[in-house]
């Protein structure tokens, strides 16, 4: 058997909230070590897609393949053991707990197979401010610092695939730069990254490939360096939309 080129792929992935269908036949793939951006307007279905990959939404077994194995609908803690971790929209830290305890939960339940690439010390080297604040309750931190905890928590699960949902949202440009500077280091460890991002320019610059989603459909798939603004505008807003 030849080694699979894709770490994760979806086949005709559909998902719904009750009667409302949020994802339509999404075909997506990501290779090991690749950074793939997923862009789209508000309500396009980006978070829904990540949640479906993480096992937080019921989807068909064959709709999600991890190293060619069907894993759709696995509970999230199984996905963590496979090597999927998420920095969720809105950070979702454990309120009432210290920075270090938030991180320790991830260490406690990290993927058991493979190397321990990420240690508490390494996270503190990556984000020195977290070491300083390690005994502070997470809700006392600034938005950017909280985002660092969320990223640290996901990394300490020792992921092979990191799902990032709008990690720049609501942060100052300087903090965004700080956070985006660590992405190449993460990718260098061989971890693949799915980057959901509102800021199209940022997404394009930080990724190898890019998907655009519109109303639950993939409307564009391209190499990030080759895609034109006009392509993106059309995929982002839909055909027939006037591009200014």
């Amino acid at each position: 058997m030849t080694p699979t080129p894709h770490l994760l792929a979806t086949r005709s992935l559909s998902a719904r909230y009750g009667d409302f269908q949020a994802l339509f036949s999404v075909d997506f793939r990501i290779a090991a070590g690749e950074v793939v951006a997923l862009i789209g307007a508000n309500g396009a279905g980006k978070s829904t897609f990540l949640r479906a990959l993480m096992g937080l939404l019921p989807v068909g077994r064959d709709m999600v393949l991890f190293e060619d194995q069907p894993v759709g609908g696995n509970p999230p803690h199984h996905m963590v053991q496979l090597g999927v971790a998420m920095v969720p929209e809105g950070r979702r830290l454990f309120a009432g707990m210290s920075v270090e305890d938030n991180l320790k939960v991830a260490i406690d339940h990290a993927r058991k197979t493979g190397d321990k690439t990420w240690t508490l010390e390494r996270i503190y080297r990556l984000f020195p401010i977290l070491q300083e604040k390690r005994n502070a309750q997470v809700e006392k931190l600034s938005g950017g610092q909280q985002q660092m905890v969320a990223i640290g928590r996901a990394l300490l699960a020792q992921p092979r695939l990191l799902l990032c949902d709008e990690i720049s949202l609501g942060l100052a440009p300087k903090v965004i730069r700080e956070i985006y500077e660590v992405l190449p280091e993460i990718a260098r460890t061989g971890t693949s990254i799915v980057l959901v991002e509102q800021d199209v320019m940022l997404a394009q610059r930080a990724s190898n490939r890019l998907y655009c989603m519109l109303e639950g459909h993939i409307t564009l798939e391209s190499t990030s360096s080759e895609v034109t603004r006009a392509d993106i505008a059309q995929a982002y807003f839909g055909a027939g939309h006037e591009v200014a």
């Binding site: 803690h77 963590v80 969720p88 454990f94 009432g96 991830a106 996901a154």
Partner: peptide, 10 residues
Amino acid sequence: ADTEAAAMTG
């Protein structure tokens, strides 16, 4: 604190 976040943390 957050059941879903705990689940996605393993």
